[in-house]
Design a protein around this nucleic acid. Structure first.
Length: 264
DNA sequence: CATTCATCCTGCTGGC
DNA sequence: TGCCAGCAGGATGAAT
């Protein structure tokens, strides 16, 4: 489900609601989730950081409650009595509660001590909406390999936060074929990519994300970016730019959508 | 080292 | 209607 814009929206929605709140109790409703309750109950949440698609709930001290929403994860702040299907975790705060649900259970909730948090943080590539996003480094990353450009965009060790939807849309807007090898990108294409990546993510963020099926903001409303999608999920429909039928191909175990005429 | 693939899950949709 | 194959926005570790 959620890529960088959706995760950032969740973060912004929850931040004012949970900051300064104390964890009163935790109810785990999924055996896959393992948490050291003794280390978490009684702790105060001091903030929420995000890198890529990971959310780091900072606790007073150095440790962290990590949440990754996977494909179908939903994290909401709720007053008691609210129903949410596929509930996996319930964190009661001194006011209100955090609910975590995840239909497919690809999401992750983990406790991280400080070194673990740092290791994970450092293992992720540049976040395109952060201050570390840098053209020199971007160029170096591209120059050092030969993979398909779509695989490059999806690999969280190079850039973090981009998923299948935004990868498809970014490539459409830059006119680059998803299977093009990064070593064969022109100087201009590298420049376009570098600029379009944060532009698409920012645009999605300003439209409150993309709702294909599950994603909801913390207040339950849908995003609007799905109305701006040019190629994702539009196989056989006409390209908004030239009218050619959008193609769908599969590699790396997932679908890529592109315009065979605009994306050479 | 870099790249590709199977796997972890559950539910929905479309074709027969 | 019933059943099954294929598909879904992600990350990871094993295999090549």
């Amino acid at each position: 489900m959620p890529e960088l814009p959706e995760v950032e929206i969740v973060r912004r929605g929850l931040l004012p609601l949970v900051t300064g709140k104390v964890i009163r109790s935790i109810t785990i409703e999924d055996q896959k989730i393992v948490l050291p309750l003794g280390l978490l109950v009684g702790r105060t949440i001091t903030g929420i950081d995000r890198k890529g698609k990971f959310l780091f709930f900072r606790l007073c001290g150095q440790d962290t409650l990590l949440v990754h929403l996977g494909m179908t994860g939903v994290l909401v702040y709720e007053e008691p009595g609210c129903e949410l299907p596929y509930r996996r975790l319930f964190i009661k705060l001194d006011a209100g509660a955090l609910l975590y649900s995840d239909q497919r259970r690809f999401g992750k909730v983990r406790y991280l001590d400080d070194p673990s948090r740092e290791r994970l943080w450092d293992s992720l590539g540049m976040d395109p909406l952060s201050g570390e996003y840098d053209f020199q480094r971007f160029q170096q990353l591209l120059a050092a390999r030969s993979c398909r450009v779509k695989d490059f965009l999806l690999d969280q060790r190079f850039l973090c936060g981009i998923g299948n939807i935004y990868a498809c849309e970014i490539l459409f807007r830059t006119g680059i074929h998803p299977e093009k090898r990064v070593s064969r990108l022109s100087i201009e294409e590298v420049g376009w990519l570098f600029r379009v990546i944060p532009q698409v993510l920012e645009e999605a963020l300003s439209l409150q994300g993309t709702t294909i099926r599950d994603f909801r903001r913390s207040d339950g409303r849908k995003g609007e970016f799905q109305n701006r999608l040019c190629v994702y999920g539009r196989a056989e429909q006409s390209c908004p730019q030239c009218g050619t039928a959008i193609k769908r191909i599969r590699f790396a175990g997932r679908s890529s959508f592109y315009c065979p005429s605009c994306q050479a």
